[in-house]
Design a protein around this nucleic acid. Structure first.
Length: 234
DNA sequence: GCGACAG
DNA sequence: ATCTTGTCGC
C-alpha cells in the first residue's frame, strides 16, 4: 500500500504528543467502507527484553474470511511503551509492513484504540490517517472513557463515554467472555465498525483479522512463519 | 499530589 | 506485549 506521507518517529514524548494533537484533526469519524470484499488485520509482536518489533498485516477476503496475503517487517523500535503513545513504538515497523502489502483492503483492523484515546488519536486513527484508509480500533482493554458492563450475550454492547460523548463501544463478541473495545479509527462510523467486528468474530473473542495477525506475528517472531504458513511473507 | 494507564 | 503449566468451566 501507498503511505500518505513521510512522518517523523524519532521524537521525544512531548513532541509526539504535539504531533498527535495536530494529526487528530485529520481523523474522519464517519464514512462508509462501501462494498467490503477485503479486510485486513495489523499487529506487532516482540520478545520481552528486545527492541526488535515484528509487525505484520494479514489480508482476508470478506465475508468468507480466507487469508489471501500475509506480509511482515522487522524494525528496531525507537520508542518505549508509553500508554497513549503506542504508535510511536509500533508505527515504523507497521508502515514498512504496509508498504509490502500488495492487497488494497477496504478496511483495516488494528490492535488498540481508535479515537477512544486521550487525544483522540489511538493507533487505529493514526495509521488510518497515514494510510488514508478506513480503519477500526479493536482493543482488549480500555485506555480512555468509562463503560458499563454489556449484557452477557454475544452481540451485546455498551457505549464508552467521555464527557457525555460516545467515543466507542464495548462489544461482547462471545458469550460470557470479556468484551472488546471498539472505536472509530478513520473514515468509518462506529455503527459499521461494530457491525464488522461482530461479522468477523467467529467463535473467538477477537475478530479474525486481528486474530490471524496475532498468530502470524508470533509465528514470524519465533522464526517458523515461513515454514508453517502459506502465502508470501516477502 | 495521587492514581490510571492500548500493546 | 512477554514470561509460562496446568487447570477449571462451558
Amino acid at each position: 500500500m501507498e503511505i500518505r506521507e513521510a512522518h517523523p518517529f524519532d521524537l521525544t514524548p512531548a513532541e509526539a504528543i504535539r504531533l498527535q494533537e495536530r494529526l487528530r484533526e485529520q481523523v474522519r469519524r464517519s464514512g462508509d467502507a462501501g462494498e467490503v470484499s477485503l479486510v485486513a488485520g495489523a499487529d506487532a509482536s516482540y520478545a520481552k527484553g528486545e527492541d526488535v518489533i515484528h509487525a505484520v498485516v494479514v489480508a482476508l477476503s470478506y465475508p468468507d474470511l480466507t487469508v489471501v496475503e500475509r506480509v511482515s517487517a522487522a524494525a528496531v523500535t525507537p520508542f518505549p511503551y508509553i500508554p497513549g503513545l503506542l504508535t510511536f513504538r509500533e508505527g515504523p515497523a507497521l508502515i514498512e509492513a504496509f508498504r509490502r502489502l500488495r492487497s488494497e483492503p477496504d478496511v483495516i483492523f488494528f490492535d488498540g484504540q481508535g479515537i477512544a484515546h486521550p487525544r483522540g488519536l489511538g493507533i487505529a486513527s493514526h495509521m488510518g490517517v497515514l494510510l488514508d484508509r478506513p480503519a477500526i480500533g479493536v482493543a482488549k482493554s480500555l485506555l480512555a472513557g468509562t463503560v458499563s458492563e454489556p449484557g452477557a450475550g454475544r452481540g451485546s454492547t455498551a457505549p464508552i463515554l467521555r464527557d457525555g460523548e460516545t467515543i466507542g463501544m464495548a462489544v461482547r463478541t462471545r458469550e460470557r467472555v470479556k468484551p472488546v473495545y471498539v472505536s472509530v479509527g478513520h473514515r468509518i462510523d462506529l455503527s459499521q465498525a461494530v457491525d464488522l467486528v461482530l461479522a468477523t468474530a467467529r467463535g473467538y473473542r477477537l475478530p479474525e483479522p486481528t486474530r490471524q495477525a496475532h498468530l502470524f506475528a508470533n509465528a514470524v517472531r519465533r522464526g517458523d512463519g515461513q515454514a508453517t504458513l502459506p502465502s508470501s511473507t516477502r
